[in-house]
Design a protein around this nucleic acid. Structure first.
Length: 267
DNA sequence: CACGAGACCTGTTCGC
DNA sequence: TGCGAACAGGTCTCGT
């Protein structure tokens, strides 16, 4: 799925296209796409609400409406576009939101993993999330103490959205390589110095991702080109950009994991 | 508490 | 060429 930089890119693109418009009607094409409320309540409640703001929290797109909050999670294959209102859904369209001014917000999601919530209390959806990587309150010291609070393999821990919000499989592999940390290292074995390095590595790779408008992989093309700057992700067997050692691929928590066996020692 | 496996889905690529 | 297996940017739930 889109990770933090891809969702940030989408949020920035949608913001000027959606703000100020009024929602006229919605058409739900795949029932399970809607997490809450019921399809009937969703349709009647959302109609007539105005879009006040569009933003991002972790990997959620947050659309603030006059009375409610619309949250959209793209999961693995979701995509969002604003188009001129049309009447025939395209392949894999799951939710159509008709807006004032002849525009339509289209949620297209091949694998049907994506979810949409409408709620008056944002905490219902995003209440359990960990710190936002770019939050000024989030510091290297805080990352260190949170790492010490667990004894878990570092990669799955970074992917845990309640530990840290927004990291996904690609940016985690990239950040661990930049910080020189093996993906299986136990979190409480990471020194303060290494935790600081990891903190800045996380911000660096996420920032680079945003600068490049995210990554476009396989058939999910969203315009970004960060895939051309991957250090290790998807580069199994290719030389490490730092030391030329062949990049290894292993499975960690059933996720493909790429790292340099020389730069990222297990210890 | 930490971890692995299985679900949820469709599509593409890999290996024989 | 063909066909099944493996794999894909995510997250939840269950069992050990």
């Amino acid at each position: 799925m889109p990770e933090l930089p891809e969702v940030e890119t989408i949020a920035r693109t949608l913001k000027p296209q959606l703000e100020g418009r009024t929602i006229l009607s919605v058409h739900l094409l795949w029932k399970r796409t809607l997490a809450t409320p019921s399809p009937r309540a969703f349709a009647s409640r959302i109609a007539g609400q105005k879009v006040l703001d569009v933003g991002r929290r972790a990997k959620f797109l947050h659309v603030r409406l006059s009375k409610d909050n619309l949250f959209i999670h793209l999961r693995m294959s979701g995509d969002l576009r604003v188009e001129k209102t049309r009447h025939k859904p395209a392949k894999h369209d799951r939710l159509i939101v008709d807006l004032s001014g002849n525009k339509t917000l289209v949620f297209n999601d091949t694998r049907k993993f994506g979810r949409v919530w409408l709620t008056d209390d944002p905490q219902d959806v995003i209440g359990g999330l960990g710190p936002e990587p770019f939050d000024p309150e989030f510091t290297p010291r805080i990352l260190y103490s949170r790492l010490q609070a667990h004894r878990r393999q570092i990669k799955p821990l970074l992917l845990d959205q309640s530990f840290l919000a927004g990291m996904g499989n690609i940016y985690t592999d990239e950040a661990l390589h930049l910080a020189g940390i093996h993906p299986l290292v136990e979190s409480d074995k990471i020194s303060l110095k290494k935790a600081e390095k990891l903190f800045y590595a996380i911000r660096t790779v996420l920032e680079a991702g945003i600068t490049h408008n995210g990554a476009s992989i396989d058939w999910v093309y969203r315009g970004g080109d960060f895939q051309n700057y991957f250090r290790v992700y998807g580069r199994t067997g290719e030389p490490c950009p730092v030391c030329r050692t062949a990049i290894k691929r292993i499975n960690v928590g059933q996720r493909g994991t790429h790292f340099c066996p020389k730069c990222q020692r297990r210890i």
